[in-house]
Amino acid sequence: MAIGNLQAVAESGAFLVTSEIGPPKGADPDAVRKAARVMKGCVDAVNLTDNQTAVVRISSVAAAVLVQQEGVEAVVQMTVRDRNRIALQSDVLGLAALGIKNVVCMSGDHPCNGNHPAAKPVYDLDSITWLQTVVQMTRDGKFQCGEEMKKKPELFVGAVENPFAPPYEYRPIRLGKKVDAGARYIQTQCAFDLDYLRRFMADVVKLGLHEQVKILVGITPMKSAKMARHMQTNVPGLQVPEAVCRRMEAAADPKEEGLAIAVETIHAVREIPGVAGIHLMPVMWEDVVPLVVERAGLLPRPTVEIATTA
């Protein structure tokens, strides 16, 4: 089986660029397809979020198939919020059988702020034991219970981390747990306040984790000053500095300003030791991805000869 494009680019040592599509709240495949077409050629792979903010949407596996039909490699996000270990492992087998190459394991937003607050939060596994489970499936061909399977799924397995939320000193150690569990790449929460990121990365480098895992820093281009304020005050786990909000508010063309901030952030992030790529998270603004990638000087994306193993 051949490895995927993301893994090939990661192993080539090139600076990685991934992006993200939030599947729609309805059975409309065209929204996903359109977003995939916009991003084609500008990114190494595209994440499909798993019912983000605990709102029901097209499943990340189904959306990933749509994206791959457009010729873009998909990364399926899988949260432990809605499925127990049986359903999760079954979906991993399913998505691998459908030709998907990448999975990212995470805990997921709690249902309390979603559109079904009365739903049972499952959290049968946590993000780290879930990651461990997928790695065990792909590497050893064994289920969480230890039983062997006939054909193991071949996947490039990643995880997430948030350097911008307390307990700050513990975050690098938690990343270490994810490395121990077998994560090959990490996508972080959106970076606005780079001081937090620098401190985090310094500890990560001290622990030597950057040599074992590719760290992709999250970048979100902001569309308006309102969005900046919203993220500053209403989204737990984000740090948006006052200066960034002011800059957005003062701008004549907020979209242009948001784009400029994103490009500046990418340049600054590339200077931080241990950073191996960026993960773009455009919220309802997929069209901006090619612009950001181009202006940040990250085009053309590397095409890596994919070696096939028997």
């Binding site: 919020r81 995470m106 805990s107 937003d109 709690h110 309390c112 939060p121 959290y123 946590d126 993000s127 780290i128 034991t129 997430v160 981390e161 948030n162 939320a165 307390p166 307990p167 513990y170 150690i173 938690r174 747990k177 929460q189 737990p236 786990g237 740090q239």
Partner: peptide
């Protein structure tokens, strides 16, 4: 923990160290 996490905090911890689900409770 509302997510019953046994291996470290989720990504939603508030800047004051409180839980994203129960703002009155320390994470």
């Amino acid at each position: 923990c509302p997510k019953q996490l046994r291996n470290g905090p989720c990504g939603g911890v508030r800047a004051n160290g409180h839980c994203e689900v129960k703002p009155e409770m320390e994470c």
